[in-house]
Design a protein around this nucleic acid. Structure first.
Lengths: 186, 186
DNA sequence: TTGCTTACTTACTTACAAGTAAGTAATTTT
DNA sequence: AAAATTACTTACTTGTAAGTAAGTAAGCAA
């Protein structure tokens, strides 16, 4: 029955990405899973513990997925990142960072630190990918790779947020233009 | 005593931009203003009514401010937009769009519509500014002006969110690179 | 000067979020 | 076979969010 725990995390993950951390309650999880709210407290004593688990799983998933792609050319690797966001957009979700960052100040320190280190992990990977890709002539951009990674991440993150408000075609318009700008050709 | 109403809106605006819509309560307003929560309900029967007022004021402020700048060259106009965001960053706030969009699905339709039309107003203005600026040779960018406005808005919005999580120097790194990219020179 | 409106307060209610204490059935360990 | 552990449920408690009904003091209007 260990998969109750995984189902709780998975539903919490969904709820955060669709409605936001401060807008979901244990009832939103216990009802669909047909368990009692105390069962959630058994696995995750506090909501913060659950939030931490969601962030940890997200980072793990990102780490294993990107590790699998490490041998591929950097433009393919970056495409994986865009595809991940595109999938979220189709599902009506925003990314975990986009959902958690506005609520950051309401979090206890332990959760804030998790969010910050998740953000670092994403940015470091993206910066590395862009840097190596530029060296190989796969990308063309000015300035520091880390600064460019900040721009790319912020565009991806915000494109999901704007899509939610302005309709989901917005996502493609932003990412297409973003990819064109990075493209080495011409 | 009409300014109680204005103080309520102003505090709600701050609370949304620092802690998020679903994380503040009438008590967070009534305590510092030294009034009773029922006094807020007198002016704003529901929390939705208060949210709508906050959005309306934001759009009004934007409209009057940009109208004042209409005669200036477009690069100065765009600088005003960046300065506005820079000010929020210094105050530890995110923008209203960045705060409200993740919670969008938890809003009743009337508030959703307000958020969407606020977003439209910002994007339309930015697209117009970029388009005219490009024609005059003040900006240099590829593609549709509206698509470019989407990129600029998404970078500004997300730079405040990322700054919150990664430290507020992030804002300058993103916006500097963004302005360099748009700059017509070289 | 009576009545109406404005801007509140007092004192509730209802609902629900978060968490806990104690118990239990099923499995695993010793 | 007894003891401990796992994965829960039952049945609470505490706190707070959102909203409301009824009252009131001050100002103005006829």
């Amino acid at each position: 029955m260990q998969d109750t725990k995984e189902r709780i995390i998975s539903l919490a993950d969904q709820l955060i990405k669709t409605r936001g951390y401060n807008a979901f309650s244990y009832k939103d999880i216990s009802d669909p899973l047909e368990i009692k709210n105390a069962a959630i407290h058994y696995h995750f004593p506090t909501k913060t513990d659950l939030g931490i688990a969601v962030v940890d799983i997200e980072v793990e998933r990102f780490t294993t997925q990107t590790a699998k792609l490490a041998a591929q050319p950097e433009d393919k690797q970056l495409k994986f990142l865009f595809d991940t966001f595109n999938k979220k957009n189709k599902e009506g979700m925003v990314c975990l960072m986009g959902s958690l960052s506005p609520d950051y100040e309401t979090f206890p320190t332990v959760l804030q630190e998790k969010v910050t280190s998740m953000s670092s992990a994403f940015l470091d990977w993206t910066a590395g990918c862009l840097e190596r890709g530029r060296e190989k002539g796969l990308f063309r951009f000015d300035g520091d790779a880390y600064d460019r990674a900040l721009l790319v991440m912020s565009n991806l993150l915000a494109s999901l947020l704007l899509s939610r408000v302005m309709g989901n075609k917005i996502f493609g318009r932003i990412t297409n233009q973003l990819l064109k700008d990075l493209n080495a050709k011409k």
